[in-house]
């Protein structure tokens, strides 16, 4: 069974989609990802789709599902690197992916996630706030 690799970077998970996904592979990713969020207690998910030349309604819905499922598991999702042609096509198709946060690059996506985690840490006065703030990566 093929899988799309999920990298762990600190309290975040990074997914770089590099192949044209067939539908089963996309569904497999949803399963894998939710499992990993729980396993590592991740607070953020970054999906880099800059290599994707086509996002149809199925993949679009999958991105939406991932964002909603992650939210339930207390993780934020940011989709990064959507190509202009893909964005125009999705809008024309009638999919504006409400509820999904986006960023131009992986770096900016990371900043957004870090900002989120810091905010929620401050609110909750969590036990180890420096862990999220330094952003060091481990895979």
């Amino acid at each position: 069974m093929e899988h799309i690799p999920i990298l762990r970077m600190g309290s975040f998970l990074l997914i770089t989609v590099q192949v044209d996904m067939h539908d089963r592979l996309a569904l497999q990713l949803q399963d894998d990802l939710t499992e990993r969020i729980v396993q590592h207690g991740s607070h953020g998910v970054l999906i880099d789709i800059s290599a994707l030349e086509v996002v149809d309604s199925f993949i679009g819905r999958m991105l939406g599902n991932i964002a909603s499922m992650s939210r339930v598991l207390d993780a934020q999702t940011v989709v990064v690197g959507m190509r202009p042609a893909v964005a125009i096509t999705l809008v024309e198709l009638g999919m504006s992916l409400p509820g999904i946060r986006t960023a131009l690059t992986v770096e900016r996506g990371m900043e957004i996630l870090r900002g989120d985690v810091e905010n929620s840490m401050q609110e909750l006065e969590a036990e180890e706030p420096e862990r999220a703030a330094d952003g060091s990566s481990e895979v």
Binding site: V54, A85, I88, E92
Partner: peptide
């Protein structure tokens, strides 16, 4: 852009 629309 048109390529992407057609393929989608």
């Amino acid at each position: 852009v048109d390529q992407t629309k057609i393929v989608t």
